[in-house]
């Protein structure tokens, strides 16, 4: 299982490298594209939480999924309010497309799990997904954001992502060896 987790992480990190290449060929990620990628990354975790709410009966998993739904929804609300104020329309781009393609694979994997194996697979994916998103926000979206308020919003989101990662790792420990 540990191997599988590492593989899942490397696939995600690899996909950011691919997205990075797409950016390298087209060096500037515009603010509408940064905003789109940020919203997409948050929507994806809401999608994972939805599957957990359908499939899990574990109180710790369900509570974590509820926090993910509410927090990522709040972050999207902030992003939508800001782009509305800035009169920016989020623009689809290579990073968003890669994030969505990876998420579809992960969702398929999660949906295929038996009730017995689901909880561990979900929380393992939450740990690796938050690690990857923190890396993308800090290493890609914040440096690429030009507008000061957009940059600030992304910076304000990082502590929430790190708290989610810490929370996910706590829940993950409960499933270690199961």
């Amino acid at each position: 299982m540990k191997k599988l987790t590492n593989r899942a992480l490397s696939v995600l990190l690899c996909s950011f490298a691919i997205a990075g290449q797409a950016i390298a060929q087209n060096p500037k990620l515009s603010d509408p594209e940064v905003a789109h990628a940020a919203v997409t990354a948050n929507q994806i975790d809401i999608g994972f939480a939805e599957i957990a709410k359908e499939k899990s009966k574990n109180a710790d998993i369900l509570k974590f999924a509820e926090t993910m739904t509410n927090d990522h929804k709040a972050i999207i609300g902030q992003a939508v309010a800001l782009v509305t104020k800035l009169k920016v329309t989020p623009l689809d781009n290579a990073v968003s497309k890669q994030l969505l393609a990876d998420a579809e694979n992960k969702k398929k994997m999660l949906r295929s799990k038996s009730a017995k194996d689901f909880d561990k697979a979900y929380i393992d994916n939450e740990v690796s997904y938050h690690k990857a998103v923190i890396a993308a926000v800090e290493g890609l979206l914040i440096p690429e954001a030009e507008n000061a308020e957009l940059k600030e919003l992304l910076q304000n989101v990082v502590p929430a992502l790190k708290a989610h990662l810490g929370h996910a790792e706590m829940v993950q420990k409960m499933f270690a060896g199961k």
């Binding site: 789109h36 919203v39 739904t69 939508v80 329309t89 989020p90």
Partner: peptide, 13 residues
Amino acid sequence: MRNSIYLLLALFL
């Protein structure tokens, strides 16, 4: 895409 963002927002009570 924007529309789907609002749709998603509306979905999560």
